[in-house]
Design a binder for these strands. Structure first.
Lengths: 231, 231
DNA sequence: CGACGTTTTGAATTGGTTCAAACTAAGTGG
DNA sequence: CCACTTAGTTTGAACCAATTCAAAACGTCG
């Protein structure tokens, strides 16, 4: 959040005061189930997780990847009922922020409220960008775009640098993100590797040719709102 | 908004007081351009419009349809820079809500702020649902789902009833929504017509078999948050 | 009436899927 | 430290949903 606007010490304290005791969730386990009516929102202290929806015919769509520093269901404060679930992709450490406390915060800390609002708004911008790639780009471009996004976001979270970032998920998971089969993900990934654009070993991705990936994925990071701009 | 929570008379006045003089935008004309840094957000008084993004290879993706009663770029209050554009699909009457006034409102009207926040959160939920259909469903299911969503939303806006609603857009536009070609939209639509599920003439759609469309599209309106639930 | 935007139809092509099997890596327990 | 198990990756071949390109039909508005 401090990448997006200046946060005062008092605000930082107010924010920290929201968080309850941490809990760890092992990889593959749910953090929130679809249809839940949680009384708190979940902040990711560390780890990787993803929003997901299941379809009647057994499909699963991941609609966002979340990393340390993200709220995964802040919108449930207002939606009340979860329209989707959240699953840990890697082992996660999470902390709850009670809705009561969040609602009180909206009564007393308008600037902080706008910053939290911004977090949910950026989620929406990410969803929109994914819609654009899903609707308009082929598999290679989609994958390139996703890798660029994840690098920018992990870098912003202090988890990555030098075009190298952790990606603790399987090719099947990646298929559920991009709306492609695991088999096709594999073929496209092999091709990106063959062209020397990407390396991926042991859960670590290296983007060897950032410019080529940006071009291939038509990636423009504006939508991530990583610039500081007072709200 | 009054479908989602109780709004007091004072709140209604405060909300109305935000809106500046109305403006009309003819069909096909832009309301906001991608990359703009607007000083106000736009409320739709009447008409149909759509969020869009353009891709370098000449494609266009529509990421949301908006109708009377929606804000089309409320998120620009916090994002500052538009990550997409908005275009009028039919003639629109719109009214601006100055960001200064909106920001002031967040300082004085926390409940109203949460309601406005909810509006942007529902946008996100709609985007997520579109991601699910784009990633997991075939053309017929996607189209069925979209028609169900648009009926629910136009009905909620008081524009539709009896499974009949206005849809002032072309099959090519529909293709830009669903990430399909205009040709394929046509073929799928003809098939839905042949099966007696849908009629579409003169910009008016009739859903002749709601249950079948709900099933085909795997439509569950929960994500639209049309139930009243205090925030 | 003519013109332009939109819808409809046809035929060939393609990007991605499906299904099945082989291969690799990383535990786990004896 | 090796045999066994399991999860994940890679490869092949047949298939299909949707695209592409092209042209014809329709509708409506000046």
């Amino acid at each position: 959040m401090s990448r997006r606007d200046v946060i005062s010490a008092a605000e930082r304290d107010a924010l920290m005061g929201l968080l309850g005791p941490i809990r760890t969730v092992p990889a593959g386990r749910p953090i929130v189930e679809p249809g839940d009516r949680p009384s708190f929102s979940t902040f990711v202290v560390s780890g990787f997780c993803a929003r997901f929806s299941l379809t009647p015919n057994g499909g699963r769509q991941l609609t966002e990847i979340n990393v340390a520093g993200d709220f995964v269901d802040l919108h449930s404060l207002l939606m009340r009922q979860m329209d989707h679930g959240v699953v840990a992709l890697a082992d996660c450490v999470i902390a709850p922020a009670a809705h009561d406390a969040l609602r009180r915060l909206t009564e007393t800390h308008p600037h902080l409220t706008r910053l939290l609002w911004l977090e949910t708004v950026v989620d929406g911008a990410i969803h929109r960008q994914w819609l654009v790639t899903m609707g308009q780009q082929n598999a290679a471009s989609r994958l390139a775009h996703l890798l660029c996004e994840l690098y920018c976001r992990t870098e912003a979270a202090g988890l990555a640098s030098d075009h190298r970032f952790p990606l603790p998920m399987t090719q099947a998971d990646l298929g559920d993100v991009l709306g492609l089969t695991q088999v096709h993900i594999n073929r496209v990934l092999m091709e990106l590797r063959r062209q020397g654009l990407v390396e991926w070993k042991a859960g670590q991705v290296t983007l060897n040719d950032w410019d080529a990936l940006v071009k291939l994925g038509a990636f423009d990071p504006t939508y991530l709102r990583l610039q500081s701009d007072p709200v």
